[in-house]
């Protein structure tokens, strides 16, 4: 990135999921000492920039970076740094392996040319440390809970911790207690599964996808237009289709959100569904082995 100062560049480094090896960090240190002004800047999207790299040193710096397996980051109209929280590999709240997914996304999409910048982020659960909805396409770990009547002790904990108020437990006097789960109110946060003392809530982890977030000159929160998706393969098909949609409909220099607003959310939804991407996936969403009588299923659309 060109600086205010003539012939100086703030060298952006490609990062994935906010992680960098100790040896690589040492190389960054050396470059900042030898070619910069002895400091680095941490960007808002988990990147590192080394300011004050002189134009004549840019090529040398690139080859130095390469020695540590590093390369310059992306700017301009293309897929940017894939950000991620630490996810289930580290964080007790995590529902998906965000770091591994970020690496896959980086390998598939990083620096792909598009009509405007395109930001991808992965956050491990509803706590949303990585702010999925701020991105052109944000992925959040989610969970579809399934209740097992025979193990439930009707303690009432899940009712009070459920953020969607999707669970109502009636304790009953003489063993006639019950639990009612309303699928429509469930935000797939997985908290019931993590909290239930007897494991009566089991869950299947999956991906919640948010489309069209942007937090620059224009502010817009990403929208969830699809139900939870369980397979990583399906997730990639959805992202492929989204990027293809952006490339197809965007005017040059138009942000994804503006494109979708202009041509219509229905069209995006239609194109995503048209490819039959989700047909099988949606079939899998049918809740397995549940006490169906206890469950209020969403209205058929």
């Amino acid at each position: 990135m060109r600086q205010v100062q003539k012939d100086c560049f703030s060298m952006r480094i490609r990062s994935v999921g906010g992680q960098i090896g100790a040896e690589q960090l040492k190389k960054v240190y050396e470059i900042a000492q030898d070619y910069g002004q002895g400091y680095v800047h941490l960007t808002s999207r988990q990147g590192i920039e080394i300011p004050f790299i002189k134009l004549e040193d840019v090529e040398t710096v690139k080859s130095e970076l390469a020695k540590a397996g590093l390369e310059p980051g992306a700017c301009g109209p293309r897929v940017r740094t894939v950000t991620a929280c630490q996810g289930s590999a580290i964080c007790p709240s995590g529902l998906i392996d965000t770091s591994a997914l970020a690496k896959e996304l980086d390998a598939r999409y990083f620096a792909k040319d598009l009509p405007h910048k395109f930001k991808l982020a992965v956050t491990g659960c509803g706590n949303n440390c990585l702010k999925a909805e701020e991105n052109d396409l944000g992925i959040k770990g989610g969970m579809q809970p399934v209740w097992d009547k025979s193990t439930c002790s009707l303690c009432g904990l899940c009712e009070v911790i459920c953020p969607g108020k999707a669970i109502i437990v009636s304790k009953g006097d003489k063993g006639d207690g019950n639990l009612v789960f309303t699928q429509e109110k469930c935000t797939n946060c997985g908290k019931c599964v993590k909290s239930c003392p007897v494991g009566a809530w089991q869950g299947k982890a999956g991906f919640l996808i948010y489309f069209g977030g942007t937090f620059g000159n224009q502010i817009a929160v990403g929208k969830q237009i699809l139900p939870i998706i369980f397979s990583q393969e399906k997730l990639f098909s959805v992202i492929d289709a989204t990027i293809a949609f952006f490339a197809k409909y965007a005017r040059p220099g138009e942000r994804f959100r503006s494109t979708v607003e202009r041509v219509g959310w229905e069209l995006l939804e239609k194109e995503l569904l048209e490819k039959e991407l989700l047909e099988k996936e949606l079939a899998e969403t049918v809740l397995p082995e549940m006490e169906l009588a206890e469950i209020v299923l969403p209205e058929q659309k």
């Binding site: 007790p92 002790s153 303690c155 009432g156 904990l157 009070v160 911790i161 909290s195 003392p197 007897v198």
Partner: peptide, 25 residues
């Protein structure tokens, strides 16, 4: 209290092997 304590304290007890048997509001 409601909020962070109810979200976290029972879960921490679960992690330590203690069993929540009843929650009363």
């Amino acid at each position: 209290n409601d909020g962070e304590p109810i979200q976290n304290v029972p879960r921490s007890f679960k992690d330590e092997g203690h069993k929540v048997i009843q929650v009363v509001k």
